[in-house]
Amino acid sequence: MLCSLADNLFWLGRYLKRADHMIRLFEVNLEIMTNSNYHLTEYRWWLMLTSLGIVPQPNKSSTREDEIFKLYLFDEKNYQSALYCIAQARMNARQLRSIISSEIFERINELFLAVKSATPQEDQDSRWHDFFKKTKSQLNLIQGSTQEVMLRDDGWAFLQLGKYLEHLGSVASLLNVFFSDYQDQVGSQVKPSDYIEWVGLLKSVSAFESYLKVHTNNLKPELIVDLLVFSQVFPQSIRYSVDKIFSALKKIKECSKQPMQDQEIHEALHGLEVVSKSGGEEFIHSNRGVYFNEIQRKCIHLNNLIYKTYIEFPNSYFVN
């Protein structure tokens, strides 16, 4: 695997997941805010943007919905927008045509063209709904195509590594912001007035229906944490992402003559493993913020370690 292609695959995975996460967050937030009882619109947008790692600039963006949509969904030049992520995914995919199938490229290209040309009108709320639905469907199609046709080699591992590292950081950030705002709810059933927020959290990571299936409509913070953080079988959980990252690194190591050292992997992921052994109730009473911050820090560290080992080819290395 060419180093540059490994880089392309890693970022293809990251950008697609980032775009997916953003689209879902926007959809859920819009849904919550169109609820007639909702009065905290500006605060809600602030929370969402913060969870995405975006610090809203007072002179550049306002909390007006249409401004936010324009800037963070459709501004191709704004590196924090969904369209930028999709454009970057497409650019990476263009360079990967010898690795990914033409079907996958075409799906990514179609997604880019659709989002770039999307102009939902302010006065037609239903068009937003259609836009999000269609975009999510296209993103799912891309994930499905890659799942079906890509070889399970080190290229696949780099794609998965990017995808799950991105997801890990995104979910950790989302939960961090959410829990810092809802400390009072811990340990009891969620208040009816906050019900919509908790449902929103679950829907942000496509977890609401899975939650109902496992716990019925009995929303409790510790059970929600169980699903979103510790579940080994729910693909959007932190635990699941960590497991996938481990598997991807193992596969890359098998294929490489310059493998990342075991110790380095363990160091990079240490902490995630420890916490993943505890349960929701124990976790909910612990210092959650520190844990989520640590995950985000580990994600950055791991990203740098992957770059150092596999992407930025060590100049000192030569064949004897």
């Binding site: 695997m1 060419l2 180093c3 540059s4 292609l5 490994a6 360079q95 045509r97 010898s98 033409s102 080190d154 780099f158 890359i252 294929c255 490489s256 003559k257 310059q258 596999y310 080819f313 290395y317 030569f318 064949v319």
Partner: peptide, 29 residues
């Protein structure tokens, strides 16, 4: 490149050492 099944490379993917050309790959040169 894709239809022939050969890698599409840019200058940065190649390195010359001792008058031989190598690809920079995750598995070495």
């Amino acid at each position: 490149g894709a239809q022939m099944g050969v890698p599409i490379v840019e200058g940065r993917d190649l390195i010359v050492h001792d008058n031989h050309v190598f690809l920079r790959t995750t598995q070495g040169l």
